[in-house]
Write a protein that binds this DNA or RNA. Structure first.
Lengths: 235, 235
DNA sequence: AAGTGGTCTAGACCACTTC
DNA sequence: AAGTGGTCTAGACCACTTT
């Protein structure tokens, strides 16, 4: 037995929908009908329907009614925080350098604008599983790298400069040949491509303010993503 | 100017939060305070706060108040429908076969349980970019493959058997060496690993009822995922 | 005109937290 | 005890869709 009326109703409707009692794209009873049926106010029914709507089980159309929504199965949730799959991360080096073509494109900067590079090695059980590189445009008056080393996470690196809410990130997943120094550290041959995760950090205007590359060794394993279609398990 | 009061309030609070007016993990004014300030009922304020909560900008704690929530940047949205990155898909072959070790594990079936394989090639501008394989346990009385060929999508393949709501899918992204027939079709060398997407389809009890593998050629490009942190653009 | 969802109000009561 | 969010009600009015 649920504690709250609206949750009781959510569970009941959910059950009906999942059992297939309503065919795909069928219409549900109206708010007033449901309110009468469950003996609650219309407000409570709306709260229940809102939850089902957020969960993606139904949609509503103004003036028409509520309809069963077919799940799509093409949206996935991926967790990736730059440390995923590792239990220890060790700084390799930090340097200020001239940007390669790739970095110039990724950050949208000219060739004569220097960048700060942060290199890190991720390990799992003392085994190197990934090599992580971050690049941000260098500016005079940047906090000393010695300080940053101790904290440095990607968006956090930037949040001294940008409000963390003003930042968006994008991932790209592909394969690429590791540079020699990466192959060395990961103990992989340099002529076999590695699973590679690219991260772009943008401000809200769309300017790229940070770029990251992470080479995953075969030992890393696979990235996992779950279908975004989930039932109301909580509250 | 927004049309509705609650949206007006969402925008205002959003602006305050994004501009950094409230420090991280600061407390917002109480519902009653906000209701008085905006001159609306408490119900309306709650609706606005609910939206911000769903957007991940704030959390609420019973008896305490509403608090600013720092964005995490480790959750991403990935769109993958099995056709992503291609504009044309062509059936290669359909067959009933004995499962390999990999397939047996993935589907949780014994070696003497046959499976149906669906092979497909995805093309973009007449260039093969991916090779897609799906495996589902074979059963007597299965709809004739000739029929299925025309529709076959992955979850759709199964929805004749399971209520579409009773299905969950999981993705894994890794790399693997393509079998010879895949390398052939994709015109790739067989001794260089390819970006590979694995898909598991499970029923709600956790039993695997379908398994898929998709080999992506270098021409495919990269998979893209966006940080899950988004502002209220709609409702 | 009648039925549907969408917005909004005013007020009651409860549960939790703080002082 | 006072303040906070959480649940719930009854009823008004509006906008959209169907007949």
């Amino acid at each position: 037995m649920e504690k709250h009326l609206y949750m009781e109703i959510v569970r009941q409707l959910e059950k009906d929908i999942l059992s297939g009692a309503y065919g795909p794209s069928d219409m549900l009873p109206s708010e007033n009908t449901l309110a009468a049926k469950f003996g609650v106010s219309r407000v409570t029914i709306r709260k229940s329907l809102d939850i089902l709507k957020n969960d993606g089980l139904i949609t509503s159309m103004h003036g028409k009614g509520y309809f069963i929504k077919m799940p799509t199965f093409n949206k996935y949730h991926l967790i990736f925080d730059g440390k995923t799959g590792s239990d220890y991360s060790r700084f390799q080096k930090v340097l200020i350098s001239w940007p390669s073509d790739e970095i110039q494109r990724a950050l949208g900067i000219p060739a004569d604008r220097r960048v700060v590079e942060f290199h890190r090695v991720l390990e799992r059980s003392w085994l190197p599983v990934a090599y992580d590189e971050k690049f941000i445009p260098y500016e005079r008056g940047m906090p000393s790298v010695e300080i940053e080393i101790n904290y440095a996470e990607f968006p956090e690196l930037l949040s001294s400069k940008f409000s963390p809410f003003a930042i968006k990130t994008k991932l790209e997943i592909g394969m690429s040949y590791p540079p020699a120094y990466v192959a060395n550290v990961l103990e992989c041959p340099a002529d076999i491509p590695l699973l590679t995760v690219y991260r772009y950090v943008c401000d809200r205007s769309g300017n790229n303010v940070g770029y990251g590359r992470q080479f995953l060794s075969p030992d890393f394993g696979r990235l996992e993503a779950d279908s975004d279609y989930s039932l109301t398990s909580e509250f």
